[in-house]
Amino acid sequence: MSGLSLTTCGPSSFWGMSGRGPGPSISIETKEVTRAHRDPSADAIRARRLFDADLSYIVHPSFDDPGAEDAILASMPTSAVAQASRRGKAPTGISPYLASLYDEAPLLTREQEAHLFRKMNYLKFRASRLRAQIDPDRARAVDLETLERDLEAALAIRIQLVRANLRLVVSIASRNLGPHDDLFERVSDGNVVLFRAVELFDSSRGNKFSTYATWAIRNQLARAAQAKHHRQSRFLLGQEEVLAIAADPRTEAVDPSDLQEQRQAAVARLLARLGDRERRVLVGRYGIGGACEQTLTQLGQELGITRERVRQIEARAQDKLRGLARAHELAPLLA
């Protein structure tokens, strides 16, 4: 019996499925394993892994019909004419990688889409039913192999559905791009929603997946933009707090240029109380002191951390600035 060992190398497993762009390389090693020499502990580990897997699925009326299984598991219906005519046109001004998504996987017809969604959910339904019959402590290798095959087949269909709709994310992100937004960041946020939408879509209701996904992606991008605006507003409010504390009502009229220099010095000294990375993130994100504004991705690449980690550092630094301002710690700094 042959076993597969997959080893991934790289920062992101998502991009690896597309075959292009940043992502891992995958090496495959085959090992001959006989039932006589099978390690019982290996089966126990496999069983625990499979029992921890998420097998949630969307129920379809045909799942309870024993005679429908062959039709459900059949190959996807094809149409050469439809396949050739359903390749979308890439928007202008996007990177070659994003443009390539419009050529890699043709759009699915409504019939193909419904077939794939039903098949994916049926495989998870069947795997869930089998798993319920398995005793984790006495799992048979044949049952674990069957369970793994169904899960791998369901995952392959999920990836196929995602790839066929990646261009939808690019299109929506391109149309909702702000002047200071990074297209790759917006696409990345939209891709997360797309993966989740594939899991939650109920094809039995007769709706098109693109309609459902477009609604979900637009809502997420709008929330992300609102959250970004809120963070920027909070930072600006924090600056106002700093400047308000820096103002001394006992002073007489001051030359505007001198006042501006004092304020800049006050903010600079307050920023000096932050850690190096916190200060670097705020300066880059908001262009403080004339610096160029940078996206989360750009700062992450510069600092060797993830976008999410940059976001966390930014939020923490803003909280520190407001705390320093409210505690009136600026006065001794200016002394």
Results as ranks from 00 to 15, higher is better:
residue 7 T to H: 08
residue 10 G to Q: 03
residue 12 S to P: 00
residue 17 M to K: 09
residue 18 S to W: 08
residue 23 G to I: 05
residue 27 S to V: 14
residue 32 E to T: 11
residue 37 H to A: 11
residue 40 P to V: 03
residue 47 A to C: 15
residue 48 R to I: 06
residue 52 D to R: 08
residue 53 A to Q: 04
residue 56 S to L: 00
residue 67 G to K: 14
residue 68 A to K: 14
residue 69 E to A: 09
residue 70 D to W: 02
residue 71 A to F: 03
residue 72 I to V: 09
residue 72 I to T: 04
residue 74 A to S: 15
residue 75 S to H: 11
residue 76 M to W: 00
residue 80 A to T: 15
residue 90 A to T: 14
residue 92 T to N: 15
residue 92 T to Q: 15
residue 98 L to M: 14
residue 99 A to W: 07
residue 100 S to P: 02
residue 100 S to E: 06
residue 100 S to T: 10
residue 104 E to A: 15
residue 106 P to Y: 06
residue 107 L to D: 14
residue 108 L to H: 01
residue 108 L to V: 13
residue 114 A to R: 15
residue 119 K to H: 14
residue 120 M to D: 03
residue 121 N to L: 00
residue 125 F to C: 07
residue 126 R to M: 01
residue 127 A to E: 04
residue 131 R to F: 04
residue 138 R to P: 04
residue 141 A to F: 03
residue 142 V to E: 05
residue 143 D to P: 04
residue 144 L to E: 09
residue 144 L to P: 05
residue 145 E to H: 01
residue 146 T to K: 04
residue 147 L to V: 03
residue 150 D to N: 05
residue 150 D to I: 02
residue 150 D to L: 04
residue 151 L to P: 03
residue 154 A to D: 02
residue 157 I to K: 01
residue 158 R to F: 00
residue 162 V to H: 03
residue 171 S to D: 15
residue 172 I to M: 07
residue 173 A to G: 04
residue 176 N to R: 12
residue 179 P to R: 12
residue 181 D to S: 12
residue 182 D to L: 02
residue 184 F to P: 01
residue 184 F to W: 06
residue 189 D to E: 15
residue 191 N to S: 12
residue 199 E to I: 06
residue 201 F to L: 13
residue 203 S to V: 13
residue 208 K to F: 12
residue 211 T to Q: 09
residue 214 T to Q: 15
residue 214 T to I: 05
residue 214 T to H: 00
residue 216 A to P: 09
residue 221 L to W: 07
residue 222 A to K: 13
residue 224 A to N: 14
residue 224 A to M: 11
residue 226 Q to C: 08
residue 229 H to C: 03
residue 230 H to S: 05
residue 239 Q to M: 08
residue 243 L to G: 02
residue 244 A to K: 07
residue 245 I to R: 09
residue 246 A to T: 08
residue 246 A to M: 08
residue 248 D to W: 04
residue 249 P to V: 05
residue 252 E to I: 10
residue 252 E to D: 09
residue 252 E to S: 08
residue 255 D to S: 08
residue 257 S to K: 07
residue 259 L to S: 04
residue 260 Q to L: 08
residue 260 Q to N: 05
residue 262 Q to N: 06
residue 263 R to T: 01
residue 264 Q to R: 07
residue 268 A to Q: 12
residue 270 L to V: 06
residue 271 L to K: 03
residue 272 A to V: 02
residue 273 R to T: 10
residue 275 G to K: 04
residue 281 V to R: 05
residue 281 V to P: 12
residue 285 R to K: 13
residue 288 I to R: 06
residue 290 G to K: 02
residue 293 E to S: 11
residue 295 T to E: 01
residue 298 Q to L: 11
residue 298 Q to D: 05
residue 299 L to G: 07
residue 303 L to F: 10
residue 304 G to T: 03
residue 306 T to Y: 03
residue 311 R to N: 09
residue 312 Q to T: 13
residue 312 Q to S: 11
residue 315 A to N: 09
residue 318 Q to Y: 00
residue 322 R to V: 12
residue 327 A to V: 02
residue 331 A to F: 08
